[in-house]
């Protein structure tokens, strides 16, 4: 078991001598698919149970439970696991010599283990397909939003029915709105009239977020203005996706 090493990594930088009790890994009853990956510096993993339970760990060896998969999703994962049935018990990367601090992965496919010695380089498509499927199934349903954007001379309204991350033209503005410690050189971009925000987002659930030209957070308004100045918002279609 590689769990004590994980517990020790937890202590990083704190100088404490405490050692936490460690959890047992993937080999638990009812596991449909599990993986644990890493080297002596860091380990992480995940597991899906046949009843849909979904658990993950990273660094700390304690599994954390997240929203379960639906029966239909479990079926899809089971089908992907079945496609990996013929994989051998150990898959070697073939590097000679094997690079320093190479990560190694142990996959559990319904109680059968497949070890990948050089992960992820040597990981077979069957295993990666299961992980990609899980990532797809876990993608959060999009939260639709409406954006009111100051163009420099007027405010335009843009509908974003998809996830804002999927809209390339919003990328810089999104960073300017949500990244910590924003910084940008002050733009000559004209301020909107008093009471009109530079940008205002209303999410489908009614939540709103706005940044004004006189925003109290240092650098935020300048960062937003710099992002606004980079796009001709008035020329965009009213629906961005």
């Amino acid at each position: 078991m590689r769990w004590l090493a994980c517990a020790l990594i937890l202590l990083a930088g704190c100088g404490s001598a405490s050692e936490t009790p460690v959890a047992e890994p993937a080999r638990e009853a009812g596991v449909l698919f599990a993986y644990e990956v890493g080297n002596h510096l860091h380990r992480y993993g995940g597991r899906v149970f046949e009843d849909g339970r979904y658990e993950l760990f990273s660094g700390e060896p304690d599994w954390e439970t997240f929203e379960p998969f639906t029966p239909d999703q479990v079926e899809q994962i089971a089908a992907a696991v079945d496609k990996a049935e013929s994989l051998p018990g150990e898959i070697k990367g073939g590097s000679d010599p094997i690079p320093p601090d190479t990560a190694r992965a142990t996959f559990t496919l319904r109680g059968r283990e497949v070890v990948v010695d050089e992960y992820p380089q040597a990981s077979p498509p069957e295993l990666e397909a299961i992980l990609e499927l899980i990532a797809r199934l876990r993608k959060k349903p999009p939260v639709a939003s409406t954006w009111e954007v100051w163009t420099g001379s007027e405010t335009v309204k843009l509908q974003v029915p998809c996830d804002m991350g999927d809209v390339a033209v919003l990328a810089d503005l999104r960073d300017a709105l949500f990244m910590p410690s924003p910084s940008a050189t002050a733009s000559r971009f004209p301020d909107p009239p008093s009471g009109t925000p530079l940008v205002r987002i209303e999410f489908a659930d009614g939540e709103t977020h706005a940044v004004a030209a006189d925003d109290g957070e240092p650098g935020r308004a300048d960062a937003v203005k710099a992002a606004l100045a980079g796009t001709d918002w008035a020329k965009l279609p009213p629906r961005l996706c």
């Binding site: 993950l56 990273s58 929203e67 993608k139 939260v143 991350g165 949500f178 939540e207």
Partner: peptide, 30 residues
């Protein structure tokens, strides 16, 4: 940007997606 986690950050993405408001989620993802 599209919300795809690098290997090993699956748990972090789940935790971000579980945040109560979209603004908190966007701030965490950033």
């Amino acid at each position: 940007k599209a919300g795809v986690a690098r290997k090993g950050l699956e748990k972090e993405l789940e935790k971000a997606n579980a945040l109560p408001t979209e603004i908190e989620r966007q701030q965490r993802l950033a």
